[in-house]
Amino acid sequence: MQADILVLPGDGIGPEVTAAAVQVLRAVAQRYGHVFRFEEKLIGGAAIDATGEPLPADTLAAAQRAHAVLLGAVGGPKWSDPKATVRPEQGLLAIRRALGLYANLRPVKPHPAALGASPIKPHLLTGVDLMVVRELTGGIYFGQKQRTADSASDLCEYSVAEIERVTRRACTLAQSRRGRVTSVDKANVLETSRLWREVVTRVVREEFPGIELEHQLVDSMAMHLLAKPREYDVIVTENMFGDILTDEASMLAGSLGLLPSASLGESTVGLYEPIHGSAPDIAGRGIANPYATILSAAMLLRHSLGLENEARCIEKAVDGALDNGVFTADLAPGGRGVGTQAATAAVLEQLELECQPVMMRD
């Protein structure tokens, strides 16, 4: 296979972790006989510094040409002035909307070797395997915003079509898992949530009668997610709730540095990124955890390129590194872990040991 992959390192530790993921993708390509062509462009704060825009036109054009996009992280103190009219996060929101990426998939499956890094009791984490599907292009993040001298407002708005399509994505995923969907809203207070609940209920009833559907209010869901995480399979929710709940869910895995994500639309083009931020406090020190970005690269292979065997190979290699106790500082007791490159090298070593390339037929 030949594929064009756009790499957007972004800010902070973004360049370090994307470089690690590219190393792994190159190794996979060599091992399985693929040709991956990588192009690098600016986004976020780095793009603002260079061009004045968080998403330059040539970056968007490159994304629209690519088969998939691998992103690091955006933002940092340098660009955090709340009064600024141009902010790094605008680049991320804009590329999601421009590419029609309406569903953000965030898997949470704690690794047994890393359970000690979680503040949650280990017996609650054994067997946890859930997928959060976050609606990505609607809601309060994209609504009209107003600010006066003594007040401010943000409009939260959803259409029936936006809720239908993300519900279908969640249900389709649930069909290949345990067949259970939990929809999260705030229907006791918000009109958008009342619409959300009605549409989700109708889509499941009419189009996915085999799916077991449960509704949860977001505040109770925040509690249940930590108290009984094993009970959940696929969780679908709106943009802001999904943003908050998936950061909370990272505590199940022990670190944000272990959780990948995929942002998908109707086409096979997707954007893949770790759910963590730019971590400017450790940028340039070579200690960032690359596992989430490497696992995001695995999702890229699966969802955009259709390379399931290769995706599983990367996931198996990360599992092997963790099984061998190769922990970065965010996972290691006392914060005394290996650096980014050592963790990446451990994954590359596991690729060689455990992942057998598909033999070509004569």
Results as ranks from 00 to 15, higher is better:
218 V>D: 04
286 G>W: 13
196 W>T: 01
23 Q>K: 15
271 L>H: 04
48 I>N: 07
170 A>N: 03
310 E>S: 10
84 A>K: 09
75 G>E: 08
197 R>W: 07
102 Y>W: 11
354 E>L: 14
290 P>A: 13
321 A>P: 00
27 A>Q: 05
267 S>L: 05
245 L>N: 03
283 A>W: 14
99 L>I: 08
339 G>V: 03
348 L>F: 12
142 F>G: 01
258 L>P: 02
9 P>H: 13
260 P>R: 11
215 H>L: 07
131 M>V: 15
237 T>Q: 10
236 V>D: 07
23 Q>L: 13
77 P>L: 10
76 G>Q: 09
185 D>W: 06
34 H>T: 03
7 V>S: 04
338 V>C: 13
232 Y>P: 00
217 L>C: 06
54 P>Q: 01
235 I>T: 05
211 I>W: 03
141 Y>R: 05
200 V>R: 03
101 L>A: 02
219 D>K: 12
115 L>N: 01
156 C>E: 15
51 T>R: 09
30 Q>M: 09
246 T>A: 06
172 T>G: 02
80 S>L: 02
5 I>W: 08
150 D>A: 13
312 R>K: 13
175 Q>Y: 04
225 L>I: 10
171 C>K: 08
249 A>R: 10
174 A>T: 01
48 I>D: 09
41 K>P: 00
172 T>C: 01
54 P>M: 01
148 T>A: 11
287 I>R: 15
167 T>G: 05
159 S>T: 15
133 V>D: 05
124 L>G: 01
126 T>I: 15
359 M>L: 14
302 R>V: 01
215 H>Y: 14
166 V>H: 09
186 K>V: 03
307 L>E: 14
46 A>N: 13
358 V>Q: 15
32 Y>M: 03
361 R>S: 12
330 D>T: 06
322 L>H: 11
281 D>K: 13
